[in-house]
């Protein structure tokens, strides 16, 4: 199976703090990988490096054989864990922005997803609730025909109904041609999506494997394995 993302001995330090400490990870094409770890384990730092908005201190990261940069930004669809749209925008402006900036953006698909998410194109971004914002951000990110989707806490702060809707949207839009890397704390809600799971602690991968194999080997759910690993 083709490798879409490969990290070798990836390190990132901020003055005295080490966020990533020799991270090694390989993600294959067509797989949904869960990146699980407690707060401050380096998940967001790692995703930012993949998105090309943070530089590693050392080590190597290759996306489709290229270092993060303009070329890989066209291949990676990144969902940050914060509000990032201009406050003056309406949903239609945000859709147009993505359509203008990304060649792989599918405006028709975005329209369909907005309907599925019960979002009106006329709504103002600043008037959206947390859950509605999450649904909008996910719509924008998943409406790109990217090779790698990088989702940082896509379920953060949303109610269970919205959570289900978001998970359905991820599954509905996933294709064998793309890979998804998801970080979350809500392991039990999302674990049914995972093909592979990587557990990260103190900036390095402490456990990686096929989700189904891990479940049958340890006779536990991924959520239970998570609790055991980070006990």
């Amino acid at each position: 199976m083709e490798t879409i993302l490969k990290c070798t001995d990836l390190k990132k330090s901020y003055f005295r703090k080490t966020a990533l400490n020799g991270l090694n990870l390989e993600i294959k094409k067509g797989r949904i990988t869960g990146l699980l770890g407690p707060n401050g384990s380096g998940k967001t730092t790692f995703l930012k490096i993949i998105a090309g908005i943070l530089r590693p201190s050392s080590g190597e990261i290759l996306i489709n054989g290229n270092r993060p940069g303009i070329k890989t930004k066209a291949q990676v669809s990144y969902l940050p864990d914060r509000d990032y749209l201009y406050k003056w925008m309406r949903i239609s402006d945000a859709v147009n922005f993505f359509d203008d900036m990304y060649d792989d953006f599918d405006k028709e698909k975005a329209g369909e997803m907005l309907k599925f998410m019960n979002l009106s194109e006329d709504s103002k971004v600043r008037e959206l609730s947390k859950g509605m914002s999450e649904k909008l951000y996910l719509t924008l990110v998943l409406s790109r025909k990217s090779q790698l989707y990088v989702l940082d806490e896509p379920l953060g702060g949303v109610d269970p109904t919205t959570r289900e809707k978001i998970l359905d949207a991820i599954l509905k839009n996933y294709t064998e041609e793309s890979s998804i890397l998801i970080t979350t704390h809500l392991v039990s809600d999302i674990e049914r999506l995972f093909d592979d799971v990587a557990f990260i602690s103190e900036g390095r991968i402490v456990l990686f494997g096929n989700a189904e194999e891990l479940r049958s080997e340890r006779k536990m759910s991924i959520d239970e394995i998570y609790r055991e690993v980070f006990r």
Partner: peptide, 11 residues
């Protein structure tokens, strides 16, 4: 926050 919007574009 808009930095995430601008600097993740392939520009």
């Amino acid at each position: 926050g808009s930095a995430y919007l601008v600097f993740t574009t392939p520009k």
